[in-house]
Design a binder for these strands. Structure first.
Lengths: 342, 342
DNA sequence: CTGTTAGCGCGTTCAC
DNA sequence: GTGAACGCGCTAACAG
């Protein structure tokens, strides 16, 4: 686009030296025996002209483009997991890199296209991300390619970043238990299908395992378990409403995600029950919704931003473990937990 | 990254021709008098080897990188305006382009860095976007650069994409009027500061102008106007609650955005009023929230995706008007409007 | 010691 | 149909 960018040749000419000398000096090479004066002349010339190297031309030689491909199903454009890309963008910027963002909608044909599009542009590596954590099929990528799986896992590409759902599940139970809840705790939204199928979710199984482990270790049992085939507000509303019609002893809801909890709030309101004095609610994800509810929803957060950040740091770290990297899930305490009334 | 990509030289060698011939044939040049057989040999060789041109190397010569810089304050990572980038990504993909996405957090220093980062990579143009439409200061960009302002306007860069808020404002009033509302309509959230200051908002002034024009043309007047200094759910809740305590004749709320409406719903529920039978509600934006409310909120949508798409199409269209391009705001009818009871 | 020449990386384009 | 130069910057080998 810009017609007449300043080139290395311009700088060299102005400094009265060769482009080779200018290149070495500007790249700070110490093995080079160029005079202090030459350094000064080149640096001055570059500054005066406002020289900036052409990254594309440089990459042709060095095979480093300071550019990373970020390929996802719908991460960038979904309201839900945008923290992933936010963290990635920020970490990349701090490392002097830039992100080529592509979305595939989860369609394999577009995944292949996306991979080729970024490889055509000589990226330094590829982040492969998904909105909802799961085992992911990925089209073939040349073996030498530097790949990190974000919120996903894949046999061929062992470096991955995932939330630490096992600890997160335990934390949710601990929040209720520490408030004094022992009886009347209902689980809203478990789903055996999803929990067992890594291709549906790489993490829900861990989440529920953490919950059950912590319950068992504390000698607690759920008073009810409502399963849902999906996790939208409507489902939370439906199952909670029917639960409350049958049972008057429910004192706490442990919802599998915030959207279910959102629906549960509506059902509790319909039954004239107040959160948290009649019923405590705790949940997962820290969806934006959680902060809009009245009272605010206490939730175990998906650390999307930290995950996005970690994915870039791992991609650029050549000493990384070729393994899963689990990111802690922060507890966001708002106002939806209270000791049981009775 | 990938070590041994197939190069044009490989293709030429296999076809038994020069790279010059191979290049011209693969680029479909017709001014070239190369034999049909040469065409076949080159195309076959390319296909067999799976040749893909190195976009960076090509760009060095052609000054076309098929890459566009998308620089925004927080668009990509905010849940609110992510449709902008979604539309842009999709339109770019369809045009064979790719987006280099950068975020600045609205900080001028980072804006300058972002501009340099994308220019260093020889992008074909730059989209400059913001989450909330407004007049935008932009650091200097070389004059030859192809720039489109997205959801923003700027004197130096006349090509811009904005929502058609004037028509949108009129549409909101029309929705209430068509349902039979004439009295007891309250405006929630007008704000003279914002309406007059293009650097706060390039569009709210248009939105309110559309509303007032349509009201006037129909001989309608607001029964009340509640102003808010900000447009979060809490503000909608507060002003609606106090309004309802004073007035019993309110039959419809025209909220300046969905987040205010979200708060208004909560206030109506607190007062025991039902939407839409006691009070109709109409609003703007089509925030994700609008679909979660019960009943669903009827709203005049910000056409984020269409805007993002338009920004790319304009950037790539050399016959474009150097002007503002207004994108229609679709009406999303859900269940929050009903004829007045009395 | 101080610096240069020439060639490369990959694909496009012009003159012959 | 081709050789050679070019776009821009890096680097190995070489010269004063």
């Amino acid at each position: 686009m810009p017609n007449k960018r300043v080139t290395l040749a311009d700088v060299a000419r102005r400094a009265g030296l060769s482009t080779a000398a200018a290149s070495m000096i500007l790249n700070g090479r110490t093995d080079t025996r160029l005079s202090a004066e030459a350094h000064a002349r080149v640096n001055d010339a570059a500054a005066e002209l406002g020289y900036r190297p052409n990254v594309a031309a440089r990459g042709l030689r060095t095979r480093k483009t300071l550019t990373i491909g970020f390929i996802s199903d719908v991460v960038a454009t979904t309201r839900f997991a945008s923290g992933l890309i936010q963290g990635a963008l920020d970490a990349a910027r701090k490392a002097g890199h830039v992100l080529l963002v592509l979305e595939t909608g989860g369609e394999p044909a577009r995944e292949s296209e996306a991979i080729e599009a970024v490889l055509d542009r000589q990226v330094d590596g590829i982040i492969f991300g998904v909105m909802r954590a799961r085992e992911l099929f990925v089209p073939d990528i040349p073996p030498a390619t530097n790949v990190v799986m974000l919120n996903a896992s894949n046999k061929k590409h062992p470096v991955s970043v995932l939330p630490d759902e096992l600890s997160g599940g335990r934390a949710a139970v601990r929040l209720l238990a520490d408030a004094g809840h022992r009886n009347g705790i209902a689980l809203i939204g478990h789903n055996k299908e999803v929990e067992k199928n890594l291709f549906r979710s790489a993490t829900v199984g861990q989440r529920i395992a953490g919950i059950r482990t912590e319950m068992a270790e504390r000698g607690l049992r759920f008073a009810a378990e409502e399963s849902c085939w999906d996790w939208e507000p409507q489902h939370g509303y439906d199952v909670t409403l029917s639960l409350l019609k049958e049972r008057r002893d429910i004192r706490a809801l442990l919802c599998m995600n915030d959207r279910l909890a959102f629906g549960a709030y509506q059902a509790l309101a319909d039954r004239g029950l107040s959160v948290p004095h009649d019923v405590s609610v705790v949940s997962f994800d820290n969806d934006e919704l959680a902060s809009y509810l009245r009272p605010g929803l206490t939730t175990v957060a998906l650390p999307h931003e930290a995950m996005g950040r970690a994915s870039i740091e791992l991609l650029l770290d050549h000493n990384r473990r070729p393994d899963q990297h689990l990111i802690p899930m922060p507890i966001i305490e708002r106002g939806s937990i209270h000791p049981p009334a009775d």
